[in-house]
Design a protein around this nucleic acid. Structure first.
Lengths: 303, 303
DNA sequence: ATCTAGCTTTTCATTTTTGAATAGATCAAA
DNA sequence: TTTGATCTATTCAAAAATGAAAAGCTAGAT
């Protein structure tokens, strides 16, 4: 008894194609399951159903996942086309929402999320109590298209197409050390003095190193005594006296435990971009949040 | 309690989008249900789920169906893109099938299906017993893309893109009348004599009228005494002595009850095109059937 | 005014699908 | 070799989706 009996061609459920796309992209049933919110057995069955219906082996099963079989190779292109269209569908639909209530997701860097957004969100809550805000704190480049967030605050000019973007201004970066640290190690007077000091910085994010370089300070990963890929933890380390750290001036200057070095000189600037998907501009509540952030986000200089 | 609660955005199931596309295209749940093989309630719920998840009214419910609401209007484009991609997916997948067994659907006109294909199919069955053949007898332009058939025999050059096509030759059309009719009414000698005779022909298909005109016979719908939109019934009417009818010469001449008029003169020719979707050429069994028809289909002249 | 035809939605018993848990398999590292 | 991590496929009880039938609704015809 063969899988594909004679007679009517069974229906191909689009859910199966969704499963195919996801598994093809993530490389395993488990990974796809984690990403899609379905369970691994479910995806397994969807793939099986698709294979049986089409009478083709789509994936080769290995012990570390499912890899596309020759027959499936040419199909991924069409599945991706479907995914893209589905994304556009969802975006366009979201844009149609006229309800002012509901939640809006904002993504921003850890520091912005922790030190700049809270007061802004609090202010917004009083003006727009029906809008719920969800902050996706992440330094990685969240893909707006994949709807990780509705609105993104970025420290660089967005390259993605289909997004609208607006430069809110720039944030000035300064150097800080805790009072305790300065009392013990003294304060560097010029940029060249830094090599004798302890630095606290990032593990992974190279942007900051480039920032230092731009300010005339040549550094490598090794010049950082304590490294951590979480910017907030880094800042707390700095406050605790572990060394010299970088921070947005407006944040650092509001902090009692630390002093700005070099007389609060700006050693680097970061542009601040507000971005959202173009389709979303017609959504009442997202548009409202967009405008609100645009007006109330505090930057060192608007331009 | 609003439908869309705060927190996580619920997943949009691609099945819902499939339902959306189908309902948007067919104009009602019932029609979409008939077309898709699902039931009305199921589609109704899919649409509802989609609307609830998106928080948008996609359709306005009327007593004669669902019409796209303003918010849904812009979405149909993306849904259609998905459908198109899904169709391509299925076609490409079908092309990957290397199994020689399975069924192949051939669509052709009523006459070709009834009088020309049977012997051909019988011959093919002896050579390829594992291939099951399904004949979709229909005069309307079956859309290959929608998989009404895998292979189509057409009486005109196909315009659809993405199909491969091959002209098999031409079929000559002649005029026939039953012996009984001729005994009673005599046989017309020239083309101009026809106005005094009874004609049997189509109700809807204007192609035939144009065919007559091309042969120098000017006719209108009213010149046909007996009309029927089924070509086979028309031919049976002709054989029963109701009047003069048209038929492929090779078919009419094999028929004892009738005589060819005008000494078997060809009054029109029809091209015969064999077509299939390009993706399907790589499917072993469809390719086999394609070649078989190409070699064995009997036409009056190959060119 | 009533009736009919066609549509959607609701109800409810049934079937199907789902996911947690489990078993089995493979690879990498200790 | 053994252990541990990571994968897929299977099992089975629970949850969800499904379709037949019924109810409700509207437009158009009688």
């Amino acid at each position: 008894m063969t899988a594909k009996a004679a007679g009517k061609t069974p229906r191909v459920d689009w859910s199966w194609l969704e499963a195919f796309q996801s598994v093809a992209e993530h490389g395993s049933l488990s990974a796809a399951a984690r990403a899609s919110g379905l369970s691994q057995p479910t995806l397994s069955r969807h793939i099986s159903a698709l294979e049986q219906t089409l009478g083709v082996t789509l994936f080769d099963r290995t012990s570390q996942g499912l890899v596309l079989a020759p027959a499936g190779l040419g199909l991924v292109e069409h599945a991706n086309t479907m995914l893209s269209a589905a994304n556009r569908f969802a975006l366009h639909a979201e844009g149609q929402t006229q309800a002012i209530e509901g939640s809006v997701r904002i993504t921003a860097s850890d520091v912005v999320s922790a030190y700049l957004l809270p007061t802004l969100v609090a202010k917004m809550q009083t003006e727009e109590p029906r809008i719920q805000v969800e902050i996706v704190s992440s330094d990685r480049t969240g893909n707006l298209l994949q709807r990780e967030a509705d609105i993104a605050l970025r420290m660089y000019q967005p390259t993605q197409q289909d997004v609208i973007a607006k430069k809110l201004g720039t944030l000035n970066i300064g150097l800080f050390a805790s009072k305790e640290y300065i009392a013990k190690h003294g304060e560097p007077d010029t940029l060249n003095d830094f090599s004798a000091h302890r630095l606290v910085g990032y593990d992974t994010n190279h942007q900051m190193i480039e920032g230092y370089q731009h300010a005339g300070i040549r550094l490598t990963q090794n010049d950082f005594n304590v490294r951590c890929d979480n910017q907030i933890v880094t800042w707390e380390l700095c406050k605790a006296g572990c060394g010299i750290g970088v921070m947005q001036l407006c944040v650092g200057q509001a902090c009692d435990e630390v002093c700005a070095l070099l007389q609060g000189q700006t050693v680097a600037t970061l542009p601040v971009w507000l971005t959202a998907h173009a389709e979303l501009r017609t959504s009442a509540r997202i548009s409202r949040v967009y405008e609100f952030i645009s007006e109330h986000f505090v930057v060192d200089s608007r331009d």
